[in-house]
Design a protein around this nucleic acid. Structure first.
Length: 178
DNA sequence: TGTGTGATAGTCT
DNA sequence: GACTATCACACAT
């Protein structure tokens, strides 16, 4: 799923305006066998969405000030999710600049917490059904372009750092730097 | 382009 | 009470 999401378009609808970004970087997280996963130690109030139906948004708050956006991937009862680490802004760039407080397009969404800020994703969307096609969902790109996928180790985690479950579009300038 | 560090609050032990 | 799936800024190179 993490690889399949690369090259797809993240869509955020806010009333009349819509924000769109090409997904360029993701990370895969599993459950009981993945020490880096929130679900590793079993269900809690915070991670319960990871154990629910697939195709839903798992949004969590971290580092005291940041939100991160994940998509659940496994059947109910099994934990698994894909973290969206970076997107390439496609539509609504003026709106994103306003939300991010910067004019630099490269800094709008090249990081997991940056893209949630640019796309106005907060805890209010935790558990949101992506298959409804409302407020937050994924579509095919209007002008698909060929790309190749690179893999590496996941970023910012302690345990489970050896698994190469971070995927990104090769040579895309909007992939996060760290 | 890279390194160091402070900000800040929810979650789990 | 420790830890965290991060970011922005200052400063060095």
């Amino acid at each position: 799923m993490a690889k399949d999401l690369l090259g797809k378009v993240l869509v955020r609808r806010l009333g009349a305006t819509s924000l769109e970004g090409l997904i360029v970087e993701t990370e895969a997280y599993r459950g009981y066998d993945d020490a880096a996963s929130h679900a590793y130690r079993g269900p809690t109030l915070r991670n319960q969405v990871m154990f629910g139906e697939p195709g839903h948004a798992y949004v969590y708050f971290t580092y005291g000030m940041h939100y991160c956006l994940n998509f659940t991937t496994e059947p109910a009862g099994q934990a698994g999710a894909v973290l969206l680490r970076a997107v390439q802004p496609v539509k609504g760039i003026v709106e994103m600049k306003k939300r991010r407080g910067t004019e630099r397009v490269k800094d709008l969404s090249n990081g997991p917490a940056k893209l949630t800020q640019a796309f106005a994703v907060t805890k209010a969307l935790n558990g949101h059904d992506l298959t409804l096609g409302e407020r937050l969902y994924v579509t095919e790109p209007f002008h698909p372009e060929p790309f190749s996928i690179s893999a590496g180790t996941r970023i910012g985690i302690k345990a489970g750092g050896e698994k190469p479950w971070r995927f990104f579009i090769s040579d895309n300038p909007f992939v996060s730097k760290r």
